[in-house]
Simulated assay, not measured.
Amino acid sequence: MAIQISPSILSADFARLADEAAVVASSADWLHVDVMDNHFVPNLTLGLPVVESLRKAAAVPLDCHLMIEDPDRWAPDYAEVGAGSVTIHAEAAKSPIRTLRTIRSAGARAGLALNPATSVDVYADLLAEVDMLLVMTVEPGFGGQPFLDLMLPKIRRARELISTRDTDVWLQVDGGVSDETIERCAEAGADVFVAGSAVYKSADPAAAVDALRAQAQRVTAVGV
């Protein structure tokens, strides 16, 4: 499986978002944008106008992760302003199938995110409606949290469910991904990795992306 790295601008300098996007443009596959509303999660970050502006400035496609209370209302708008991928939370969506289909019809990849306490099996039947399944490896809301090792069996279970279906669904992990944890995630079956502090708190963010990718590729190459 192809390894993809999505640096999270939650750990970047918000006063220099365009510059921070450019720093990883040569190495990243996506730019992960955490949208938080201080309702679904206890934090407030950025919203649609900033995403629209960033899309015009960034050379890397945007991977928008909506940690918001009403994704059914707002998710299609993020696709329409040019986000390459829009992920909604299963716990927040009232009409997930309709919303996922609307995201796709607007031209973006549709993702479904699961909080740590949410069972992946409950949403197995929705895999045909998604392009990416996101397993949160921390509680959503804040960057810099330590990785939850107890999510590794859940990642493995998600990979099992994806593998039993005739569908090409990416398996993303978000939260605490670093040079100390990415290999365990890759071994469990993840192929898209969100990394915030591990990238933007390093001296060379682009080199950090390359190093993380190499670590994950080593694990998948040997078929661990």
Rank of each mutant, 00 (worst) to 15 (best):
G176V: 05
T102Q: 11
A186L: 08
D19Q: 15
A221H: 12
S105Y: 00
S6W: 05
A216P: 06
K56I: 02
F142M: 03
T137D: 01
A18L: 12
P116C: 09
L31M: 09
A28N: 08
V50L: 11
A106N: 08
P49A: 10
I88H: 01
D19I: 02
K56G: 09
A208G: 06
V219Q: 06
A83N: 04
K94L: 14
S53H: 12
A12F: 13
L62V: 10
M67K: 13
G111E: 06
A203P: 07
V138G: 07
G82S: 10
R104G: 14
I103Q: 00
V130R: 06
T164F: 00
I182G: 07
G107L: 12
G111Y: 04
M67C: 08
L66E: 05
G107W: 03
G107H: 09
L112Q: 05
D204Q: 13
I88S: 01
A15Q: 15
R165P: 00
K56Y: 02
A188M: 09
A211M: 09
L54F: 07
D19W: 04
A216E: 00
A75L: 11
L127I: 15
H89G: 02
H39W: 10
G107M: 12
R98T: 14
L54Q: 08
Q172K: 15
V23Q: 15
G189P: 03
D13G: 13
V177F: 02
L31C: 11
V209F: 07
D204W: 03
L126H: 03
S197V: 02
A108G: 01
E180A: 15
G189D: 04
T181N: 02
V130I: 15
A83W: 00
Q217A: 13
A59P: 06
V86A: 02
I9D: 06
A110F: 03
D29L: 12
I155R: 00
G189H: 13
R218F: 01
A83I: 09
Y78S: 07
I97A: 10
R184Q: 10
R101A: 14
L212R: 13
G107T: 14
L62M: 07
S178P: 06
D70M: 07
Q217H: 08
P61A: 10
P71N: 10
F142K: 09
A57D: 13
D204H: 10
V224E: 05
G141L: 01
H65S: 04
I9T: 14
V130T: 12
A214C: 02
Q145F: 03
A79T: 11
V50T: 14
A113Q: 06
C64G: 02
P116N: 12
I162H: 05
V24R: 14
G223H: 08
K94P: 05
T164Y: 01
I88T: 08
E91V: 06
A58E: 00
M136H: 05
Q215A: 15
M1G: 12
A108R: 04
R109C: 07
D204A: 09
L48Q: 07
M36E: 15
S8H: 13
D121V: 05
V130G: 02
H65C: 05
V219C: 11
T99D: 03
F147R: 08
K56W: 00
V222W: 01
V86T: 10
E183T: 15
D174S: 11
R156Y: 01
P61Y: 03
A203H: 13
V51L: 03
P116I: 11
I3P: 05
Q172F: 01
I155T: 04
S27E: 13
C64K: 07
T99C: 10
L112K: 08
